Each structure stands twice: as C-alpha cells, then as structure tokens.
Simulated scan of single mutants.
Amino acid sequence: MSLQEKLEAVLSESSAVFGVTVKHIGTQEEARINADRYFQMASTFKVPILAALFRDVEAGRLRLEDRIRLTEDDLVAGSGVLKEFLPGVEVAIRDLAMLMIIVSDNVGTDKVVELVGKERVEAFMRELGLNGISVKFDCWELLSIGAGLAGEKKGKAGVDRLNKQFAETGFDPDNFIFQPSPENNVATPSDMGRLLELIATGQLVSQEACDGILDIMKRQQLRNRIPYSLPDKTVIACKSGTIGSVVNDVGIVYLPEDKGAFTIAAMSQGNGTMKEGEQLIARLALTAYEHFMSQ
C-alpha cells in the first residue's frame, strides 16, 4: 500500500474531519488528505508566532535575553503555568517562548504576541508564501470569543468570568472560532506542513534561527499525540492544539538509522472526545514512521 492509502485507512475509522499532510524531507514522498482545507489551528498557531519571534530576533528588533514583567492584567485562562505565578515575576523572552511551546502556556503566548504583533505574524506568513495561515486572535481573544464573551478584558476578573461561563455552557460548536474562515485562526495542513519543512531544512530566516526554533520544539512535554506511539528515543519537534472538538498536532519526526525526517500536520474537527482525536493522530504518526522506516 502507498503512504496515502495507509493514512486513509487509519482515518476511515473516524467520524471526525481530518486534514493531514505527511512529507519525507529527503525523498519528498508525501500524502495529502484535505490538505488545502482550512482548520482552526488552536494552539498550533504558536508555531507561526515562534517563527515570527525568531525573525524579529534575527533582525535585532527583540532580544531573547530581555526580561518582561508579568502583572495580574496579563492573566489568561487555559493551559500553562505562568497563570499560577505571583504577579510581578520577570521572565526572559526566550523563557516565554519556551513555555508557549513545551507546555502551551497561554500567558506566555499572549506576551510574545504583544511583543511581535498579530498582524506582523500573519504578514510574515504571507512573505513566506503561506497564504493558508491566518492569525487574527491571541489566546485570550480566541477563548473569550469562544465563550461568548467577546470584548472581555484579560486579567483576573476576566479569567474568573470566562471560567464560570465555560463551567456552565462550554464551547458552542457553532461559534465563529470554529468556522473555516481566513478571518479566523486557521491554517491549511499544506501550508502548516510547508512551514515545518522550512524550519526543518534551515530555510526560515537563517540556519541559526531554525536551530533556535527546533531546540524549543524538541523539548515538547505534551507527548500524547504525534510522539505517543513512536519509539521512546525518537526525536520529535512538535506542537499540539485543542479547543472544543478541534484536536491537532504538527511536527517534525526524525527517523533513526539515517532514514531522514518527515513533517506531519494533523488537524481535525468534530472529534467525539479529545482522546479519540489524540489516538487517531498517534496512529497516523506511527503509520508514517513505519512506512518510511520500511523504505
């Protein structure tokens, strides 16, 4: 069976809608399923943000060593650890970026977005020819709109209201944030895979910038999707994302025995449970891994 057929067989067991691209960086063998369809990125949008940050560092606009003071007004709901810190802590920009990726920290993400600028992240994607990646909202905006609290200010009071709303109603599946619109935080698996390929091959900004991005992504601590079923010592640079029924993971998998590496962008919507989506992504990654190892 071809790689395409193998991945389609895995997805045939799911009622969710998946978009997947897998590409071996050396041989260029690839498979594409709904590759040009828009999907809500959820926290995988932190990869374009990280790319734009390192572009700004390379240009001398920002320094990773500079420290940013976090206040109560910076609080954001959702994943991460910085929301648990006492107000007033000073965190290096590099550490904000590290937490943004390895534990998907929303406070750290929104501070990086504040430094880089949403519009500049999207403009950078356009410069790269990645017209299928749109970044319109930071984490707080995405969550507050999803909860029906558009315009609510971040900070302790806003987080309390957001958490109360989520506890009562959860996400509305018809909410705008789930619509496949370029006015949303969306990406096509094709363009997300291309961004990963540029990073993996040192073609994004500079080799030094790509090395910095990969150093962070390889430290990923959330390993229940792409990495889950792969051999324990497999080197993987990845970033997952979840919101409502959206379950995503995107990354670069490095194969042993000089077999090269492959990119994988798995994005989905309509999963019955988060675990169902996670298991499908783990199976997709393992299927691709075994296919390339057999070549």
Rank of each mutant, 00 (worst) to 15 (best):
K6Q: 15
K6N: 15
L7P: 10
A16S: 10
T21R: 09
T21M: 06
I25W: 00
D36L: 05
M41L: 13
L50Y: 00
A51V: 10
R55Y: 00
V57S: 09
A59M: 14
E65G: 01
R69N: 05
E72M: 10
L75C: 08
A77H: 02
L86N: 14
G88N: 11
G88Q: 13
V91A: 11
A97L: 12
K111T: 04
V113Q: 03
K118R: 12
G129R: 15
G132W: 14
F137R: 15
C139H: 06
W140L: 08
L143Y: 13
G155W: 11
A157Q: 14
K164P: 00
S181H: 03
N184D: 01
N185F: 02
T188M: 11
S190H: 12
L195I: 02
L195N: 06
L196T: 00
I199F: 00
I199W: 00
T201K: 15
Q203M: 13
D211Q: 13
G212A: 10
K218Q: 13
R219N: 13
R225H: 13
S229G: 04
L230W: 14
V247L: 09
V247S: 06
V247P: 08
D249K: 06
V250N: 04
T263D: 00
I264T: 02
A265V: 02
S268W: 08
T273A: 11
T273P: 09
M274N: 12
E278G: 13
L284E: 07
A288T: 07
Y289W: 14
F292N: 05
